[in-house]
Amino acid sequence: MLSIKNLHVSVGDKPILKGINLEIKPGEIHAIMGPNGSGKSTLSHILSGKSGYTVTEGSATYQGKDLLEMPPEIRAREGVFLAFQYPVEIPGVSNVYLLKAALNSIRKHQGQSEVDAMDFLTLVKGKVRLLEMDEKFLYRAVNEGFSGGEKKRNEILQMAILEPKLCILDETDSGLDIDALKIVSEGVNSLRSPDRSFVMVTHYQRLLDYIKPDFVHVLANGQIVKSGGAELALELEEKGYSWLEDAEASA
């Protein structure tokens, strides 16, 4: 699905990622954990195509294609979805308009015709129920005046409708109370499938209680310093990140 090899990324002259290697196979869930400033957000941004970053070395290959060469919208149409840490408010554009525009862009990209209006509504309303959202949300402006929890739910709603292959969840648990966290997690879990992969970037282990990862990677100072199974997250929760950073420094 995704193969990242020796990826080096800078912002201006400042190196942020210093040689990331990561292999993600279809159906897998990878958690990227790490302290603030370790480069977690940079990794999710560079994968989704945000500007302002320079790749100085290495590669990221998605389904056999050079991911880093594609403009953000092509990545999205090819099935890469970034659930934002801070979803942007877009007054004047309704949720349902954006969903329609996005879904039809994907269909066009795949050589399909525009989605039928009735089918679209049926699809969207089904997903709205899944995420326990009010249908009224569809006709409100994108994220405008939404609470933190509502914004995150809206991200998962978009994901559920666009059916991406590679989902990148950037700090999805931040700003969520426990009820919202459960609903969001259930939404994500319902999307798990053998041909869909997830990269969950998170500071805290909390989210991983609800979405069980196959692999956990610890990012520190721009590198993956340790990888393991789900149990690694628990170990981090107990010991914090400092022991890894110390271990790396002494190594």
Binding site: E73, P87, V88, L98, Q158
Partner: peptide, 14 residues
């Protein structure tokens, strides 16, 4: 620019 990127990440060209 943040809004433009958000829309791009939702399949919309620039």
């Amino acid at each position: 620019e943040k809004s433009i990127f958000y829309l791009q990440s939702r399949c919309v060209d620039e």
